[in-house]
Write a protein that binds this DNA or RNA. Structure first.
Lengths: 338, 338
DNA sequence: TATATTTGCTTAAACGTTTAAGCAAAAGTA
DNA sequence: TACTTTTGCTTAAACGTTTAAGCAAATATA
């Protein structure tokens, strides 16, 4: 009927030594004898001792918690990133607090407050689409909390970043479509204020020029890239006098919307119009025809983001050099562009 | 250049009162004057005071953290449950630590250890498919930590549970298929050791009998319900001399696998074979033909699970009556069974 | 042998809160 | 007036751990 949990004091009482000695024994301090260490560990196990994480965190001034903010967990990319981040950080003794912003700036701000309140040792985040005002992220920095961004980053913040080479990815996609014989390629992109979408757009424009294809304003569209956006923008593209023969869509969800519209209008994919998405979400291989897409290496991004965070806390005082790690993405060619 | 964060002592010094008075003022204690409260709050804001969560948690013996364990976050059902749980719990002052087991028993055990180590005030979990050994969940109970299960529960554990009526859902599905004229209905289910899958199987068997349809052993299959399982089991069903005219699959992923095989074999859905999935994952409405499925009311489940947890902590000492809340599911009829 | 070093512990303070107990002054009551 | 009650604070201890400082005994060094 022992309501109370065992503490190091309980162990100390059993062995008639001080609580300090117990603490040191549990941490394998060199000034504690082998014999005492063994006895302490034995009693700890016997009494089912669980260290009080709050007390040690309070004393040591760190919580061993890392806050994670993602636009949503319900995406293969983000949940995979998180999984691999967790692997690395758990091994280093950190636990994760995962929060989702649902692409809302307001929710993101509340998440940041929550994480700061919870005394996390650092924050690894991917920004909401809506976010333009960076004051809340500045708040993290001014609280001296290590911050690492991935995928959705922001140059102005001057923090470590891990992402893929969006500019190059666009080049890769356009090259693939050109080689397949496409002459008129449209791009349904995100809003330029988000760095990754801006890079994809820049890559698209430069690649189009490089291959001497027409760079027509009506072929370049900005949107929120939801499935519904994909539908709307695809319908708009179909009304053009001079219809494109390929569409590069900056998200898989929007690409799926576009595909639905094409199917509904009995336009053959890839024969009449070729289609490429972005993100390599599982459903891209499940729909008919399967959608060509870009693998963003979520495993590596998660792992590297975690490692970057660890470097950051380990070298906290020394003036840190900025880390921007850009991975090459991989084009997964499927039926929609074959 | 103030490295240190502001504490209540700093506020106390500014106002020449005791730290205790500051603490009480911040908590609107009735024994502190209005004037002092206002001043304390003003100074707190001025100094950008952030309460040290660890210290207050240590002192009060509770962390205001709730641990969540789900098989995976990359599922619309679970991420939606989490989102709505978060809404309720944030309002009540709790934060979430989300962990995923990836359907692995081992990972689930490690997650439980992690959460206990982090001193969570309670755990809300949905069990991994693999889990049969309940000792780790018993460990939660024996640590006196409130435990609430949802979706994937377990009768033997005797803890609060929120889920849908799986047995009734099967009846609903069979009724729908019978009304559509089906005479020979197969079921690709999960393993009976998991309660929800057992209930779906029982519902299937009883409904089949009720409608005087043939209950053939070869029509009832147990599997892991992954997409690949759906493909394999569907191929097996197609080899039967007496082929079914409808398939009820206990997960959307497996239903999709089955659909792929049917499409590849040029078997018309729904004309030759009708298909029903379970879970109402977004892709069910996106594939061709769209898949009839069951909406599990993730929003309500998340909300009720959170509320159940709150009831549990509020009435911790009084002998708690067991809460099992079973919601009615909703059949979403789509092209695959029309 | 006398002195220095190492070993193995102890004591006590600290981390930032909360809270029980207490005390003086103000306000209320008879 | 003399008392009780209320108000508005303070003091001090506690939560469970870590850690700097210190001290005696054992061991090494000269």
């Amino acid at each position: 009927m022992n309501k109370k949990r065992t503490t190091i004091k309980d162990i100390a009482n059993v062995l008639n030594i001080s609580a300090a000695a117990v603490s040191k024994a549990l941490h394998d301090d060199s000034r504690i004898s082998k014999k005492t260490k063994l006895e302490v560990k034995r009693v700890a196990k016997e009494l089912n001792y669980q260290p009080n994480h709050l007390a040690s965190a309070l004393r040591r001034g760190k919580s061993n918690l890392v806050g994670v903010i993602v636009p949503r967990t319900n995406s293969n990319f983000f949940s995979s990133v998180i999984e691999h981040m967790e692997d690395v950080l758990n091994k280093a003794g950190y636990n994760l607090i995962i929060t989702q912003s649902n692409e809302s700036f307001e929710k993101e701000c509340r998440n940041i407050d929550t994480l700061l309140f919870t005394q996390v040792d650092g924050i690894i985040a991917s920004m909401a689409n809506e976010t333009v005002d960076l004051s809340y992220f500045e708040k993290i920095k001014s609280n001296n909390i290590p911050l690492v961004l991935f995928d959705r980053g922001e140059n102005d913040l001057n923090v470590d970043y891990i992402g893929i080479n969006d500019y190059e990815s666009s080049h890769m996609i356009i090259k693939h479509l050109v080689e397949a014989g496409c002459k008129r390629i449209a791009h349904i992109g995100g809003y330029r204020r988000t760095r990754i979408f801006n890079n994809r757009i820049r890559g698209y424009i430069d690649a189009i020029k490089k291959h001497n294809l027409p760079h027509d304003d009506e072929l370049l569209i900005e949107s929120n890239l939801t499935l519904e956006d994909g539908r709307i923008q695809m319908k708009k593209l179909l009304t053009l006098k001079n219809c494109p023969d390929a569409i590069y869509v900056a998200s898989d969800a929007a690409a799926l919307g576009a595909l639905q519209v094409l199917n509904e209008n009995n336009i053959a994919v890839p024969d009449d119009i070729r289609l490429v998405g972005f993100g390599n979400e599982p459903f891209t291989s499940l729909v008919t025809p399967s959608i060509t897409s870009v693998n963003q290496h979520s495993e590596q991004i998660g792992q590297i983001a975690a490692e970057t965070f660890l470097e950051l806390v380990q070298s906290k005082d020394l003036k840190q050099t900025l880390n921007k790690k850009i991975l090459d993405a991989e084009l997964i060619i499927r039926d929609s562009s074959k």
